[in-house]
């Protein structure tokens, strides 16, 4: 049974929540927020969508298996760890671009790392929840 109120609300809530999650991700370095919370909020957005429209619809919206977000996220995080080594610096050294950018502030490897965490969290939460909700026995 689908509630049309929930469905309509979700249509507007999903983009707002996703935007909010990105906002949390980007501000994390200066204000409360960060990749972990951001990822959780983004997952909640998709979970909400799946409650309203069914898990299959959410999977379609996501366009891929949530499991596939794990290697991407881990890859990005690992990349930001190894990146400084190309300049002969120890791994995990924070690298920052010169100057400031609108919205983000300074741009550096820490943000990449956080992005990786964000994707992994979304991947993990959605994998677990979607797998459970799609299992029928």
């Amino acid at each position: 049974m689908r509630s049309s109120i929930l469905q309509t609300a979700t249509r507007y809530l999903l983009p707002i929540l996703l935007l909010f999650s990105v906002f949390l991700l980007l501000r994390g370095h200066y204000y409360p927020g960060g990749g972990f919370v951001g990822g959780l909020v983004a997952s909640i957005a998709f979970v909400l969508h799946s409650f309203a429209n069914g898990t299959d619809a959410s999977m379609k919206l996501l366009g891929r298996k949530p499991l596939s977000l794990l290697p991407i996220g881990l890859g990005i995080a690992a990349f930001s760890v190894v990146l400084p080594m190309f300049w002969g610096l120890p791994p995990m050294t924070g690298l920052w671009l010169k100057g400031t950018f609108p919205i983000v502030g300074s741009l550096g490897t820490a943000l990449f790392f956080d992005l990786g965490v964000y994707l992994v969290v979304v991947g993990v939460v959605l994998t677990i929840l979607f797998t459970i909700s799609l299992t029928d026995d």
Partner: peptide
Amino acid sequence: AKGKNVVNV
């Protein structure tokens, strides 16, 4: 580390 949010840094 150029961050103000200590937890996140």
